[in-house]
């Protein structure tokens, strides 16, 4: 157990020094050490103290991987932590970081636009309204769904973020809402002055707007007004194919009946 404790201390030291690369290296050693103690999966044979330490180490690992922008590693840590959170013995002294980790996972799912998984995880949580870490992604999801993008924008400002790990998602989030707003604008406005577009898209300067316009298909700038190409979907051709398809199927069915 001594080796684990020693490694754990050096892990904490490097996390405090914000040296996440070293921390990640220590983590891989630690995981091996934990494996030797049979503590990577909670079981009744392993002393509870060891399991608590293991849980803390894995949580630290998860946070480290967030800082390193390694989202896959974070998902793995999250999956590994699940049995620890479900264990009834361990839940007598619940981890302080549990809600933080879950909240971060929810946020990750949100940025990946995996909404169905998001709700699946949410269903597992009870009384999440009280916790600031879980509440944050939940509120973000609600605003995103109803379209209050300005609230999302405000929430991503550093003063509203529950902890610095959450701040790391800000960029991805803003990019994805900007994308959403752009697709909405295409449909909602016939044209839009660049000045207004700057506000709407949360961009800093008009130059950034012009740059953004160039990255989109079918957007044109004339006299500092953006014109959106109005594409009318040609439904009629598609529908005739549909009708034929359906009618043939009816005929087939009728044939089996008669």
């Amino acid at each position: 157990m001594a080796d684990v404790r020693q490694l754990h201390q050096s892990l904490q030291a490097s996390v405090q020094a914000r040296d996440y690369t070293t921390a990640a290296q220590t983590m891989s050693q630690l995981k091996l050490a934990l494996l030797e103690h049979n503590a990577l999966i909670p079981s009744s044979e392993v002393p509870i103290k060891v399991l608590e330490a293991a849980r803390e180490i894995l949580e630290t690992g998860a946070l480290v991987s967030i800082h390193l922008h390694d989202h896959e590693a974070f998902s793995r840590y999250y999956a590994q932590l699940q049995p620890f959170y479900a264990d009834s013995e361990l839940n007598k002294s619940p981890s302080r970081n549990q809600n933080k980790i879950i909240g971060l996972y929810l946020l990750l799912l949100l940025t990946k636009q995996d909404i169905s998984e998001f709700h699946t995880v949410l269903e597992l949580l009870e009384g999440y309204d009280d916790d600031v870490h879980v509440r944050y992604p939940v509120m973000l999801e609600r605003w995103l769904m109803e379209g209050s993008y300005d609230k999302v924008w405000q929430a991503t400002k550093s003063s509203h973020v529950p902890s610095d790990e959450y701040g790391l998602f800000t960029e991805t989030l803003i990019e994805s809402i900007r994308d959403e707003i752009a697709t909405c604008s295409e449909k909602a406005y016939p044209s839009l002055p660049i000045q207004n577009a700057k506000q709407l898209l949360f961009l800093d300067s008009e130059g950034a707007v012009v740059k953004f316009v160039q990255s989109r298909n079918g957007w044109e700038v004339k006299d500092s007004v953006i014109y959106f190409s109005q594409e009318e979907a040609d439904n009629t051709a598609l529908s005739s194919l549909n009708v034929i398809d359906n009618t043939i199927r009816y005929a087939q069915e009728l044939e089996t009946i008669v």
């Binding site: 379209g147 209050s148 909602a188 406005y189």
Partner: peptide, 13 residues
């Protein structure tokens, strides 16, 4: 009002 604008835009989309 800004919220309203975004919400309406999304509803249109």
């Amino acid at each position: 009002e800004e919220s309203a604008e975004y919400v309406v835009a999304k509803a249109i989309r």
